[in-house]
Design a protein around this nucleic acid. Structure first.
Length: 466
RNA sequence: GGAGAGGUGGCUGAGUGGUCGAAAGCGACGGUCUCGAAAACCGUUAUAGGUGUACGCCUAUCAAGGGUUCGAAUCCCUUCCUCUCCGCCA
């Protein structure tokens, strides 16, 4: 979410920021609504002050047993105007808020222009690509080993799920344990085991809602769809139903109106990443600035609908509805986030280095950087089976964009003024894809897979899978 | 799932229609005292927004949203959350 004061004070910079995102200038429209809102608010507050004064007098007069008819008439006379102003103020405030929370974050100047991952700028590269004759893809290796089963997964859950068994299941567990140990013991992250089902406002806080609902799974606590619809329809108005009968209104509109009128019941979303609960740990809090940064890590399943990626990466477990990931989240003082971003990327890189997997780090282009982010580093691991680098980690500095949505602030000791914290998140790293990378990079001609040194102690000394 | 009790400032907690943004205590901060500290005493101590050059003034906020009323922390409705007992359950 953007700061209205930033739009007021630096309208050109704001529009320039939108332009780099490929969006038209919005400041004029926003400021128009903002100034309307303020003038309505001023009039409303003046009227409220008058009303409050008159009400106070009424109270005094009545206590003394006098006749307050005149004052009551006065208040009654301003009632309509006041409620109109209150409604208008609410609408305008919502309009301004709507703009501010639906536009993406302003990017740092160094973010390279471009539209997709091919425009990303490589910043560094590590490791040598292994020389493998006729490298196989991970699913060929896994299925041949009998430890990766897509058919049975489909039987249980449909496409984009995997069943891992035996040593590959162990490898998955070992990867997560290795990553968590590294981040907690060497880099000072606090291990967290968070809820995986969260409320609307939590998804809003990290920018998943309201725009990206289609990317998520929804866990209704309620009954069947039919029951839900019936319940909502009890809020339909008689006038709407009459209009429906006369054919003046569509069923869809009647339902939509009823839904709007029905009370909001909070159902829960499945987290798309542990960033969601970890970042929100500090929502609505004022943290002691001296205790920052806070660094959290968690290994959790991640649930994604992959709505926009039909047909992409359909083979294997590269793109799944459910996968494990170790996530890193930092909550920093405003002036520390840039430094923390570099540190976080290097924590993620350390994992790949220890696993001795070749990778490169790129800075995403303007058109490819996420909604909340000011700047994003992607780590791309080498996959011999695909003969290309593929994303395995994404580290973003969100500045105060999420903090504003979550109302997460900090305050220095002795200060009265609070500031919004900065939030950063990064994969440290995606476990499913790390498993793929290990399989493809460590594959042997006989179809077995050598276990990287760093993982052996997490796999009971196992040196080779298969 | 059934029954009940609640949600008030940094914390504890009073307040059931009118000078209540809210008693009291604790905590924190400033001061007096002291060589210094403690104790004691005195004082200060919410957030957001609007408005004016300015001491300021105004508005909103007692979980959230809506309603009743001239006026709501207080009454009504809905939602969310917490706790207790029973049931079920890893």
């Amino acid at each position: 979410m953007h700061d209205i004061r930033f739009v007021r004070e630096q309208a050109e910079a704001f529009d320039e920021g939108l332009k780099r995102r490929g969006l038209p200038p919005m400041s004029a429209e926003i400021l128009k609504a903002d100034s309307e809102r303020r003038s309505v608010q001023t009039e409303m507050q003046e009227l409220q002050a008058k009303r409050n004064e008159a009400s106070k007098q009424i109270g005094e007069i009545k206590r003394k047993g006098g006749n307050a008819d005149e004052q009551m008439k006065l208040v009654a006379a301003m009632k309509d105007r006041l409620s109109a102003l209150e409604t208008a103020e609410k609408e305008l405030a919502a309009k301004v808020q709507g703009y501010l929370c639906s536009l993406p974050n302003i990017l740092f100047p160094e973010v390279p222009p471009g539209v997709d991952d091919s425009d990303a700028k490589e910043v560094r590269r590590f490791g040598e690509q292994p020389k493998i004759a006729a490298p196989k893809e991970h699913y060929e290796l896994g299925e041949a080993l009998g430890m990766m089963d897509f058919e049975r997964a489909a039987k249980l859950s449909g496409a984009r799920f995997t069943v891992l068994q035996g040593q590959l299941a162990l490898l998955e567990r070992a990867l997560g344990n290795f990553m968590l140990d590294t981040h907690t013991q060497e880099f000072g992250y606090l291990e967290v085991s968070p809820p995986l089902l969260v409320k609307d406002e939590i998804m809003f806080g990290v920018g998943q809602l309201p725009k990206f609902a289609d990317d998520m799974f929804f866990a209704g606590r309620t009954k069947s769809r039919e029951d839900l619809l019936r319940e909502a329809l009890t809020y339909a108005e008689a006038a709407d139903i009459d209009a429906l009968k006369k054919g003046e209104m569509s069923l869809a509109d009647v339902v939509a109106n009823a839904m709007n009128r029905a009370p909001v019941k909070e159902d829960l979303w499945l987290v798309t990443t542990a960033e969601v609960p970890l970042t929100n740990l500090v929502n609505n809090e004022i943290l002691e600035k001296e205790k920052l940064p806070l660094r959290f890590t968690a290994r959790t399943p991640c649930f994604r609908s992959e709505a926009g990626s039909a047909g992409k990466d359909t083979r294997g477990m590269l793109r799944q509805h459910q996968f494990y990931k170790v996530e890193l989240v930092s909550i920093t003082a405003p002036e520390k986030s840039v430094e923390e971003h570099e540190r976080m990327a290097s924590c993620a890189e350390t994992i790949l280095k220890r696993l001795e997997l070749p990778f490169r780090t790129v800075m995403l282009a303007t058109g490819d950087t996420g909604f909340c982010s000011k700047k994003t580093y992607d780590l791309e691991v080498w996959l011999p089976g695909q003969n290309r680098y593929r994303e395995i980690s994404s580290c973003s500095n969100c500045g105060d964009f999420q903090a504003r949505r979550m109302n997460a602030r900090c305050r220095a000791a002795g200060d009265k003024q609070t500031e919004f914290v900065h939030t950063l998140n990064g994969s440290g790293i995606a476990i499913g894809r790390a498993l793929i990378a290990v399989m493809e990079n460590y594959q042997q001609p006989d179809g077995s897979i050598v276990v990287p040194n760093a993982l052996r102690k997490y796999m009971n000394g196992l040196e080779r899978i298969g």
